[in-house]
Simulated scan of single mutants.
Amino acid sequence: MSNFRFLTSGESHGQCLTAIVEGIPAGLKIDIEAINRDLARRQQGYGRGGRMKIETDKADVVSGVRFGETMGDPVTLRVVNRDWQNWTDRMSVFGPEFGDKVTAVRPGHADLIGVLKYNRNDARDILERASARETAARVAVGGLCKEFLKACGIEVVSHVTKIGGIAVDEANIDRSKIGCGDSELNCYDPEAEEKMKAKIQEAMKAGDTLGGVFEVIVRGAPLGLGSHIQWDKRLDGKLAWAMMAIQAIKGVEIGAGFQCGELPGSQIHDEMFLDKDNKVYRKTNRAGGLEGGMTNGEEICIKACMKPIPTLMQPLNSVDIGSKTEVSACKERSDCCAVSAASVVGEAMVAVVITEAVLDKFGGDAMVDLLSSMNNYKNRVQGGL
Rank of each mutant, 00 (worst) to 15 (best):
Ala203Ser: 14
Leu127Phe: 08
Ile166Ser: 09
Gly181Ile: 04
Ala123Gln: 07
Asp208Glu: 14
Val168Glu: 05
Ala110His: 11
Gly72Ser: 11
Lys150Pro: 01
Ala203Lys: 01
Arg82Lys: 15
Asn121Ala: 02
Tyr118His: 12
Arg82His: 14
Thr76Arg: 15
Leu185Ser: 03
Lys146Pro: 09
Ser176Ile: 05
Glu134Arg: 13
Glu97Ala: 13
Gly165Trp: 14
Asp125Glu: 15
Gln85Ser: 15
Val93Asn: 08
Glu155Met: 07
Arg175Gln: 08
His109Pro: 05
Lys177Pro: 01
Gly164Arg: 07
Glu147His: 06
Gly68Arg: 06
Gly212Leu: 08
Gly207Thr: 06
Ser158Thr: 08
Glu184Ser: 09
Asp122Ser: 03
Met91Cys: 15
Gly99Met: 11
Asn121Ser: 12
Glu128Gly: 11
Pro190Ala: 03
Asp111Lys: 10
Gly143Glu: 05
Leu116Cys: 07
Ala203Asn: 05
Phe67Gln: 11
Asn119Glu: 09
Phe214Asn: 07
Glu194Thr: 05
Gly211Asn: 01
Asp111Ala: 07
Asn81Phe: 13
Asp73Ala: 14
Gly207Phe: 10
Thr103Glu: 07
Phe67Tyr: 13
Ala151Lys: 14
Glu170Trp: 01
Val139Arg: 11
Gly68Lys: 00
Lys150Ala: 14
Phe67Arg: 08
Ile126Val: 15
Ala171Ile: 04
Ala192Trp: 05
Val102Pro: 03
Glu128Asn: 01
Asp73Glu: 11
Val139Thr: 13
